[in-house]
Amino acid sequence: MKILVPVKRVIDYNVKPRVKADGTGVDLANVKMSMNPFDEIAVEEAIRLKEKGEATEIVAVSIGVAKAQETLRTALAMGADRAILVQTDDEVEPLGVAKLLAKIVAEEAPGLVILGKQAIDDDSNQTGQMLAALLGWAQGTFASKVEVDGDTVNVTREVDGGLETVKLKTPAIVTTDLRLNEPRYASLPNIMKAKSKPLATKAPADFGVDVAPRLTTLKVVEPPQRTAGIKIADVDELVAKLKVMGVAA
């Protein structure tokens, strides 16, 4: 079985984003970028399935600027076999990403698509579900455990009430949650090997997909600063202040 793993280049999770002075978006100048953490988990799960003999090939896919090749090389160093970059300088919305992935799926014919449940830059949590709808495939979202059994996949997913296990008939879509696994670090030899692994570059026009944005960002602002707390002498003073705030009855 072939596994397709979409990955996204985002601001590193250790970096605090800065809003542009004109409020048009997030400042990406001289900011460290890395693979979306949820997508790292997806790559790791695909590798583990291959190590178990459940998969024969792992194809990493990214949609974005030319520098997204670095993100794909990271996936290749972790253990993916080859990569595809759909290069565009435009910001592609989840629907556009899902449409492009649907075209790539039609060409590659994978048995499983594993991707992060959301990207930490926009937190949309839409691409996997949209892709499943476009393909008419079964989907298992927020996966905390994935088990392949022949032509079916058992996905344990996190829901409000606890855990739910769904049985999917392949081909299927799986979106990964944080507790699925712990991604491995790419070793130096594998990083060197990744440089020689195939990486194809294409454009949205090659797939006949219009990725023009449907949404317009009106303004981006910093979250409000937290105000300083105050010290109180005793419980009576605490209750009095809570009554003023309307918290205590």
Rank of each mutant, 00 (worst) to 15 (best):
N30Q: 12
G64V: 04
A106T: 09
E51P: 01
I84C: 06
V26I: 08
I120M: 04
T56D: 15
E70I: 04
I47N: 03
E108T: 06
A98V: 13
D27K: 05
M35Q: 07
A143D: 01
K99P: 03
V86N: 01
D27Y: 01
I84T: 07
K103R: 12
Q87I: 06
A80P: 00
D89M: 07
R48T: 10
K32R: 10
K103G: 05
E40T: 06
V61L: 05
Q87C: 09
V65Y: 12
G53A: 11
Q139F: 01
S62K: 02
A29E: 15
T74Y: 09
K52E: 15
M35I: 12
L72C: 08
L85N: 04
G79S: 06
K50A: 13
K32S: 09
W137N: 12
L135K: 12
V31K: 05
A132F: 07
I63E: 01
L134V: 14
L134T: 13
E54S: 11
M78T: 06
G111I: 09
D89K: 05
A75P: 01
I104M: 07
I120Q: 02
L115V: 08
M35A: 08
L135E: 12
D123R: 12
D121H: 10
D27G: 04
K117Q: 06
A109K: 15
Q69I: 11
A29G: 15
E91G: 07
L101S: 05
G23A: 08
M130V: 11
Q129E: 11
L134Q: 10
T74I: 12
A68T: 10
I41V: 11
Q139P: 11
I41G: 05
G111P: 10
L49G: 07
K52D: 15
I120P: 06
E44C: 00
T88L: 05
E93C: 13
M35W: 04
E44K: 00
A102P: 03
A143R: 03
D123A: 15
T127E: 10
E93P: 08
R73N: 11
M33P: 07
G96Y: 01
I120R: 00
V43H: 00
V31P: 04
K117A: 08
Q126K: 11
A143N: 01
I84Y: 02
A119C: 11
M33H: 13
L135D: 13
I104Q: 06
T141A: 14
Q126F: 10
V43T: 02
V86G: 02
A106S: 09
G23K: 08
N125E: 15
A77R: 03
L49C: 09
M78P: 07
E40K: 03
L134P: 09
A109R: 15
S34M: 10
